[in-house]
Computed example of a mutant assay.
Amino acid sequence: MADSCPIPLQVWCPHVTVACVVADGDRFLMVEEEVNGRLAYNQPAGHLDDRESLVTAAVRETLEETGWTVAVEHLLGVHQWRSTEHGDGVLRFSFAARALHHDASRELDDGIRRALWLTRDDIAALGDQLRSPLVLMSIDAWLAGHRYPLDMLHSLLAEDRYP
């Protein structure tokens, strides 16, 4: 009788992240944050938590980083990238969301200096201060009209289903 393999198989696991593109006219909701001692700009974004759906993570991260409650309406795209910050692979799900309510008194996540609204030109002018190339890629997808239905995503988590 053969024993099962005593050494666990090594499996590569990327960082799974979510981000929200929230537009108000020609301006987009952004965060100014301190990352490894430098100032960087990003959409509201962060890591998917265990037992959390992608949409729930996107709503949570936006609230935690900006004080804005949003409704996620569409998937903009899925982007794969190798981070220049930590060298690990990143799989990012970018969503289009609509701003619903702002709580100006809410304390923002550690490292987040402020939330602000910027035009695409303002964001592009930030150059190397952008957290990653995925920032403009997501905004450009939104501007190009990319809108994929959320029912492309399926969550089998009993407490957190979405179509």
Rank of each mutant, 00 (worst) to 15 (best):
D109T: 11
V21T: 08
R98N: 13
S105K: 15
T56I: 01
P163V: 14
T119H: 02
V16W: 03
L156H: 10
D121F: 01
N36Y: 07
R51I: 05
R114A: 14
T56W: 00
H154L: 02
H102P: 06
Q10M: 03
V55N: 03
C13E: 02
R92Q: 07
D121H: 07
A144Q: 05
S105R: 15
G25L: 04
P133M: 02
P6F: 10
G25C: 12
P44F: 05
S4K: 02
D88L: 01
L118D: 13
E33T: 15
A144W: 08
Y148Q: 15
P44M: 04
L76H: 08
G77S: 07
G127W: 09
H102A: 15
V18T: 07
H74M: 05
E107T: 11
D122T: 08
R114M: 04
L150I: 10
P6H: 01
V31G: 02
D88T: 00
L136I: 01
D26G: 12
A124V: 12
A115H: 12
A99C: 14
L143V: 12
G67Y: 05
P14M: 06
S155G: 07
P44D: 03
L143N: 15
T17P: 02
W117P: 12
R147I: 07
V22M: 13
F28R: 13
E73P: 00
R106C: 06
L134R: 08
A144M: 09
G37L: 13
P149I: 08
T66P: 07
